[in-house]
Every structure is written in C-alpha cells, then in structure tokens.
Design a protein around this nucleic acid. Structure first.
Lengths: 94, 94
DNA sequence: TTGTAAGGTTTAAAAAGTAAACTTTAATAA
DNA sequence: TTATTAAAGTTTACTTTTTAAACCTTACAA
C-alpha cells in the first residue's frame, strides 16, 4: 500500500467543485459557480482567490459593485494539478 | 454537473489513509498504521479516536505505557462510508 | 432621490489539523 | 537492585483553514 500525497489546495470540497466545473466548462462566472457549487458568496470568493494565487485558474474581474462581473477559467497548470490529484486519489482505492 | 457531498470525516488525508488501509488489511495496530501512513503518533491518535467515535472503526486498547497495544479494525459502517465516499468522489471526475 | 437588491470582498469567529510535550510502563545497563 | 533509556500512546496548545455574517459599491425600480 502506497499512499500518494494529496494536493491540499485541491483536497477541499468547494475548491474541488470549482476546479471540476471549470475543467469541463472551461469558463464560468461567479454567479454561475455560486449556483452550481451551492457555496455562499463569501466562501466562493475566498476559494477563488486561493486557486487564482496558486495559478490554477485565471480570473477576469470587471466593474465594481452591482455592475461587476467575474469570470474564471482553468489554466494549464490547473488542469495538470487536477489530473495529478485524481491520480493520487486512485492510489487510495483498490 | 452534480456534485455529491463528500463525507467530511473521510475527506481528510490521514483519516482516509487509515480507512483505506483497514479496508484492505482488516486489522492493523497503531505502530503499523503509524509507519504505513507516515503520521506522527499524536496526529494518528487523534484521528483514530475520531474514526472510532464515528463508528467507522473499532479499536481494542490493551495495557498502558510501553506495554500497550492498540489494534484497529474497520466496521461495516466504515466500509459503507468509504464506499459512499468513493462513489461521491467519482461524481467530481467525469 | 431613495430604497432595494445584485455582485463581490473583508472580517472575525469557529472548527480542524498538527506536532511537541507528556505519561506510563518495559527493557537494559550499571 | 536502581537508574536510564526508549516504546506506545495521549493530551495540549498552537496554527491553519474554513465559513458565513457583515460590509461596500453600483445598478435598477418606484
């Protein structure tokens, strides 16, 4: 039995939801992600920022206040990290 | 895209290691688990207790101090929880 | 214009994770 | 014997992370 390390940034439910969504959608805005992931706005905001800082997603913010719009897109590094995470997880199951 | 909730007790790397190990070994003692999971004794002790309190493992403790021996075994509920967790995870990866 | 709601961000509090320090007993050396 | 060291765990205090309530800014409606 050999357990591969799990990327702690991806080993969080909300962040994983965001990444999984962006992996198949390739781009989604804040409101859509909020609805899809069932997250609160605050939590979503924080986790998006963490993924952005890690370089796993790219975020375009435009406007302020009500007129603002935030669009997220997964990066190459993000896709790779997600794949690696998935592979690591497999080492835990049979 | 529908994300199933991930059991928070299992969605922790060390606890998952413990459970995955016990799932295939069916019984392992503290020292063996410590070596296998590469955990510190303190962390292992805490996480074993949490899994025990949840009814996912059964723990037999005998003796005290150096002569003590702690053996863990997965329960039916633990096996089911692990399976459910695994299934839930699959909903995150296409 | 002013009230209300939408889109996000900041924050402070709660929860969880971690490992150093400790307790107890067994083995070993002097 | 009687220290001394080391093994097996547990407690604890600390840090990190998570979470959502409160907040800010702007747009729209009445």
């Amino acid at each position: 039995m050999e357990f591969k390390d799990l990327n702690p940034l991806l080993h969080n439910e909300l962040r994983l939801r965001i990444m999984a969504a962006l992996d198949s959608l390739d781009n989604a805005d804040f409101v859509y992600l909020k609805d899809l992931t069932k997250a609160t706005a605050g939590n979503l905001s924080v986790q998006i920022t963490k993924l952005e800082e890690a370089g796993y997603i790219k975020v375009s913010r435009s406007g302020e206040g009500r007129g603002s719009h935030t669009v997220c897109r997964i990066t190459k590094a993000g896709i790779k990290a997600l794949q690696d995470y998935q592979r690591a997880l497999l080492s835990y199951f049979s």
